[in-house]
């Protein structure tokens, strides 16, 4: 690109930079409070109060936790593969947060309205599995190694089911852009794709839970079997980065569910701003995550893999065929 070209686009670049910076920081705040939300919800479901000490009803707890992680000693095994060990959590964070770029938050606003938005999110979630496998490999610890293998196999298996369940959405919307998908669901609650694609929604929800390594599919970090899985050897703020990536991934998957199946920023009551509907749906879905975690016991690894390959992939394929057939008739 020539110099004049760069100068001509400089003001716009600056605006985009500021917009992105603000959006990412708001996301970080949301992630911090999703952790608080989880501890409160799980606490109350187990007849406890959850965090109560730091601030009013523990409201400053996430900040205290964050500060604490910065001040923790960083212990790296002496046999670890240092450069890879350093870079793995950063890859995880970049892959998780960058997915935010294509999410349409209200009418006409997303950081980058790509026409391949869905593909972009699926691609980034694949890159996230690099963080898992590299961290397990670099730790030179048996628990971390086994955890990363399990996790990588799980993530790629469920990624297929997730990708195929979203094909039905693309068939109906005729586009892979997330804002087009929301536009295709306008005009009443019954135009939401959850009613037209219930099977795809089911597969998507299960795959999203497995993809983000959450209970009941949290095999990679099954404490009773392999300590903490792939981040066993990570401590201090490096552990914090993995934690951040996990919750960011959860937020993005909830946003995907809201956008692809629940009508995104559209809502049944006129006059309410789109961002309110969007956040309401996202937090509803996040609550569902916690509810599932508090309710269901963990799957066994062989059950998990056969569930993915023998049930969800055929279901997603059948959904594609049915959707194609219905659309042609």
């Amino acid at each position: 690109m020539s110099l004049t070209g760069i100068i001509a686009t400089l003001p716009e670049t600056l605006v985009i930079f500021l917009k992105t910076f603000i959006a990412v920081n708001i996301l970080m705040l949301h992630i911090a409070y999703v952790v608080y939300f989880e501890r409160k919800v799980i606490g109350h479901m187990q007849a406890r109060l959850g965090p109560m000490r730091v601030g009013w009803h523990g409201l400053l707890q996430p900040i205290a936790d964050g500060v604490k992680l910065f001040f923790k000693e960083d212990i790296i095994p002496s046999s670890a593969d240092k450069p890879i060990f350093y870079i793995a959590p950063v890859i995880g964070v970049v892959a998780a947060i960058s997915s935010l770029a294509v999410i349409p938050m209200w009418d006409g606003f997303s950081i980058a309205d790509l026409n391949i938005g869905l593909l972009y999110i699926l691609a980034l979630s694949s890159i996230g599995s690099y963080a898992i496998i590299l961290s397990g490999w670099a730790s030179t610890s048996k628990y971390a190694f086994i955890g990363s293998l399990r996790s990588a196999a799980q993530v790629i298996s469920y990624e297929i089911a997730m990708g195929m369940s979203l094909v039905g959405i693309m068939l109906l919307a005729g586009s892979a852009s997330l804002s087009d998908i929301v536009t295709a669901q306008q005009g009443g609650v019954f135009n939401w794709f959850i009613f037209k694609q219930p099977l795809a929604f089911f597969v998507f929800v299960m795959a999203a839970i497995a993809e983000t390594n959450r209970a009941p599919f949290d095999l990679p970090e099954a404490e009773t079997e392999i300590v903490a899985g792939y981040f066993t050897e990570y401590s201090g703020i490096r552990f914090g980065l993995f934690f951040m990536a996990e919750y960011a991934g959860m937020f993005i998957m909830s946003a995907m569910a809201a956008v692809c199946f629940l009508g995104g920023w559209s809502g049944p009551i006129p006059g309410v701003p789109g961002i309110v509907w969007f956040l309401f749906k996202v937090y509803g879905f996040i609550f569902f995550y916690f509810w599932i975690r508090a309710t269901l016991p963990r799957y066994r690894y062989d059950q998990l893999m056969s569930l993915g390959w023998k049930l969800f992939i055929p279901l997603a394929l059948a959904n594609i065929v049915i959707t194609g057939l219905v659309k042609i008739l």
Binding site: F17, T20, A96, L100
Partner: peptide, 11 residues
């Protein structure tokens, strides 16, 4: 461009 920027910011 925003995609490049968000990757820069997150890293």
């Amino acid at each position: 461009l925003p995609v490049a920027i968000i990757m820069l910011i997150s890293s």
